[in-house]
Design a binder for these strands. Sequence first.
DNA 1: GGAATAACCTGGATGC
DNA 2: TGCATCCAGGTTATTC
Length: 300
Amino acid sequence: MPELPEVEVVRRGLEPAVAGAQVTATTVHDDRALTRHPGTAAQFEQSLTGRRIDAAVRRGKFLWFPLSADGQSARALVGHLGMSGQMLLREPGAPLVRHERVRLDIQHPAHGELVVVFADQRTFGSLAIDALVPTEDAAPGGYGASAPFVPAQVAHIARDPLDPAFDDRVFARAVQRRDSAIKRVLLDQSLVSGIGNIYADEALWAARIHPETTGRALPTRAVNRLLGAVRAVLGKALVEGGTSFDAQYVNVNGQAGYFAHSLSAYGRTGQPCPRCGRPIVRVAFTNRSSHYCPRCQRRR
DNA sequence: GGAATAACCTGGATGC
DNA sequence: TGCATCCAGGTTATTC
């Protein structure tokens, strides 16, 4: 499932191919991929075709591609991979990809003609064209950005822990005001972005914190330890190309990541904890699952 | 305003 | 073999 490392792998793969490229054609195969787009599929195609992409930017799990102004208001192509979205680079004229929803034909001054395919099995992902608005803190909008702008529909998303503008102290104070379980807090994208179910479980295991511990119960030292664990887990996953369980997550060339082999808690129900040997347990958690070690991660 | 939950969706796995 | 059911989970709208 695409979380921060997977989305960053995609951004890094796309950046050299799309930054500076012009969109020569846009084809929407399935308008369910445009659920976040305010207009029709035809308007989406018309708005995008002919525009130049200036960069590839990410905040949390959102990607966006600022479009050259050309006398129009500043806008960007915004994308979210949802649970199964993929952005693939293909050669011109490449056959239709399974679950292909949108295709962009682009012309890059150095790389020539290329195709960007947005494919998505479960249709939770989306593309949209959205206005860029100034960031609240005047810092660059996200990873890969030089300008202090963010798409309007991403403005409520907090910065992620790998963003240089992320404020550790503000995060710690916000956590300690919450009566919710810390896992729920980690998944709240308006407090800290980029963390999903997999990396929440892994970071809590690394920091030896029980997922049901309330934010209010965590001393500042523990919040900082957790933040360090989050950064370590995300950084390691990024180096290993992200986590792939099946064909749902691949990079822009269709290749899987290797971090699934490094997981310590997530998806390891009944297997020994790598630290103490006690079996990892799985418990229900708001329509999904939490995995943790009952010995290493004792409830406060 | 904070917290909790349902709904959206598809296909693989499992059980009968 | 075929059908029904369960499960995975990010975001948003709704409710309390």
